[in-house]
Design a protein around this nucleic acid. Structure first.
Lengths: 207, 207, 207, 207
DNA sequence: TATGAATGAGTTTTCATTCAT
DNA sequence: AATGAATGAAAACTCATTCAT
């Protein structure tokens, strides 16, 4: 279906994808206007529907398309070389922050996709693409170095606590940093306190 | 303005409020249809606008109206009698779960309000009602018994970890329970594991 | 029909009439809102329709009611004592200007009535009330002193020219004076030039 | 913006313009219904708003569009070749009458535009298009042959009187002729009396 | 006499989608 | 492949009028 689209000039493809991404990211599925998309992509109304039969297919295509870009950069092997759970989760937290700075529109899009309430869309999303995200998510905890934990600790639960803590802390930081999106920050300063939390939990769970 | 509305038959009031609550909870501000609301409330189109001058006022009224119902039940004094931070947060977590079971539509409504992207609404919400919620939220950590913590622990950070953990755990449980919303569960079974997490953190932070 | 209305407290009558007059004067028949009228008259919706069965009857009643107030002051005998056509028309022009200053709303109302395009209203007006105005208008030229005109002059045409001239001049002046409505002007200054026009025509038509 | 519209089939353009012109001429801006316009133009509701973004733009477009048609025919150079003020004004009066017979709807439209009270429209009109009309109007008195006037006559005032007279006479005639709009009259008979008025004033003001 | 809740057809405008060119 | 004219259902909101109290 969309193979037609993929044969297009790369540059035109990008214009269309970016126009759509921004519109959906800003307004969500229902409020997004195909009129705005074609206008800011500089193509005709008919052409959009020539490639993607309808709004929904366009949305779903974007979801699939950009997930790859994100995943490719996010799940680099380097994270998984690190077998210490604290270090790995901290790296992932920071790496996620960098991605949010680099591709804010894509993150906005997925954020809006996550909370998408449009009944038309909701079902399709949960069943197909979020599955992928969920599966990828589980890789985060693969092949952790378990030898460092104290004896008698319920390791899965310890890892839960560690990841909830880093997630909570990450959210706190990022919500404070939002305004600074364009700054040159490399997040070293912003995430400095992370080590305090990490130490507290290391003392609790590590030998 | 809305005093007109409050003089109505209680039963009619409820029909209108529930119809609106459900529509907004399901679809968010923009997609919600006043047509649907009047249809499911069994009143005429004109009447809705007789009481609430426009869609926005109706939405804001709902926000204000249901917040009280929720707050009254949620912030009972009994939570704050408990000075042990673990016990208090566990009680609050369970109490929140009970409310979610009792008033799922109201929770859905506030969830959708929280992520509301409609620019018309966003500003009004953050400035007025969410302030109340934020202020109430901070009460959760008031007057905690600090004497139980180990010497040398950064207590605020410890409390952060505790609440992120219980929140994370609570979300995990509730997302698993969603389908069972109407069940008779009193959550004793569902939250049994909470104590494991609590013990792990108590051992880390308490004397 | 409206005898009900005339038995009301004079003060309440006035509140209603003024509220309606202003609304119609400002917005014309169609755009005038009965809601606004009852609000600014401080009465209930039902009551307005109790007295005047519908918007149209209210409008027609106003037309009839205020015409009398205006006519009574406008067609004072004093104008008609003056038999010199120039003097009479000048007096009438000035007298009209004074009325416009004294009752601007009533003039606005009749102005808007004159140009009323609402098909509902147009027919009723032309047939009944404007007839009265037309008949009254013809009195303006009654019993003129014809002895002053030059021999061989078509007197009716001369009078046409005189009245078109004074009307044209009056309109020119009043459109310039509009902003000054509330000033204390007695129009002596504003109409000073009238005498120049009058002299030019006297020289042409009078012996 | 409206260039889209001008690329349409001429015939369809005309259908739309005429439908709109008539509706606005009959009812004024506020009461005019876009529903009626599309119905009598035989197009869909959406199409009207595809070309003109909203009712106001449509109205303003009509104002601009028809003014040209009118102006082109009205301000022919032939009027201004005639330097005798009486002849020029008589020609203009007659020419105006012919236009009123030829394009009664356009005249009705501009009449209704002139008295338009809708606040949305009023400001836009006065500032732009009526300026043009005012400027064109002033051309009427340009380059008059002043040598014919008696010495000592205030020529500007004389011209005022002449034009008020011909205007007054013209209105009188046209209001009597209204019913006969479709007649074949070339107005020679109707305006025969004009010469009597003209002679009376010539005797007064000309050498 | 007086109220104001209630109606529903009406308003302008938006929007995804189709289709002849 | 590409255009953009065309559709019509749906949106929020208004308003004169009615009627039970």
């Amino acid at each position: 279906m969309t193979s037609k689209f993929l044969n297009l000039h790369k540059e035109k493809q990008q214009r269309i994808l970016n126009a759509a991404l921004n519109e959906f990211a800003n307004k969500g599925f229902d409020r997004a206007s195909t009129n705005e998309i074609v206008k800011s992509a500089g193509i005709s109304k008919g052409l959009l529907f020539h490639y993607f039969n309808n709004k929904k297919e366009l949305y779903l295509f974007l979801h699939e398309y950009f997930i790859e870009i994100l995943m490719k950069e996010f799940f680099t092997s380097e994270h998984f070389a690190e077998r210490d759970v604290f270090e790995r989760l901290k790296k992932i937290m920071i790496s996620k922050s960098h991605l949010m700075k680099k591709y804010p529109e894509i993150f906005d899009f997925y954020m809006s996709a996550y909370i998408e309430t449009s009944s038309e869309i909701k079902n399709e999303l949960t069943s197909s693409h979020f599955d992928l995200m969920a599966r990828s998510y589980s890789r985060i905890f693969e092949n952790i170095d378990t030898s460092k934990f104290k004896e008698g600790i319920d390791m899965n639960k310890a890892i839960d606590i560690i990841s909830w803590t880093l997630e909570g802390y990450g959210n706190q930081v990022m919500s404070g940093v939002k305004g600074l999106r364009n700054s040159e920050a490399d997040f070293t300063r912003e995430f400095a306190e992370a080590d305090v939390y990490i130490d507290m939990l290391k003392r609790a769970f590590y030998k």
